[in-house]
């Protein structure tokens, strides 16, 4: 089980561009999703003209399903300057992989709940760390994809784009840098030293 918790309205509004499309992933039985509060916020973004469309869907975590679900909205999505995703961390990463040339931001933080997680085998992972980093890392998770879960950039162990731990494993921070470079968002990496919060329930 996991909980998705909305980021603050101010943060979400600051991420949205002028032609934002919102993908709102609903209906996953393992997730507690703050549907009412998210709906209010999405209505707000539509009303103010920052968002042009809300796509209500489910299971965007699965790349195949994401393709099926977004097929009829591709014109809007291609025209968007930003995509804001309301889902767990896996969903945001699946969307950012599919739309790698566009800034994809998370509208939620993902927190853990004990119990059954579901069984969908997927390429990407979410550690449910509760302080989603995806908005400053181009939609690639440094917690789940970096072998040291580093949050402040690449260590000295990257060789030919691969991790020192496993020559088959891509260096997450190499990917993050390249993605941000392509999106011309390298400045989003220039935050002050970040320290993870490991306090339970935080």
């Amino acid at each position: 089980m996991l909980i998705t918790q909305l980021k603050t309205a101010d943060e979400i509004k600051s991420l949205a561009g002028s032609k934002t499309v919102i993908i709102s992933c609903e209906g996953c039985k393992e997730v507690h999703f703050p549907a009412a509060a998210a709906g209010e916020l999405q209505k707000d973004l539509l009303g103010s003209g920052t968002a042009s469309k809300v796509i209500r869907t489910e299971y965007v975590c699965s790349p195949e399903n994401l393709s099926v679900q977004t097929k009829k909205h591709m014109d809007k999505l291609n025209a968007a300057d930003t995509i804001v995703v309301f889902s767990c961390g896996v969903g945001v990463q699946s969307v950012s992989e599919k739309f790698a040339g566009k800034p994809v931001f998370a509208g939620c933080d993902t927190l853990p709940l004990p119990g059954y997680q579901g069984v969908t085998p997927l390429e990407v992972d979410c550690d449910q760390c509760g302080e989603c980093y995806l908005n400053s890392t181009g939609g690639i998770c440094p917690i789940a994809s970096c072998s040291k879960s580093l949050v402040n950039g690449q260590c000295g162990g990257c060789k030919d784009g691969k991790c020192e731990v496993d020559k088959e494993m891509e260096c997450a921070w190499d990917r993050i840098y390249k993605r941000l470079d392509k999106l011309q968002l390298l400045d989003s990496m220039k935050y002050p030293a970040k320290l993870r919060n490991f306090a339970p329930g935080s």
Binding site: G153, G156, C158, Y177, L186, M189, K190, P192, A193
Partner: peptide
């Protein structure tokens, strides 16, 4: 001499700021 020297420079800047 890293093959990803630009990524290293970005980290270097963060270290200087820290």
């Amino acid at each position: 001499c890293s093959d990803s020297v630009d990524v290293q420079l970005a980290k270097m800047e963060r270290k200087v700021e820290a």
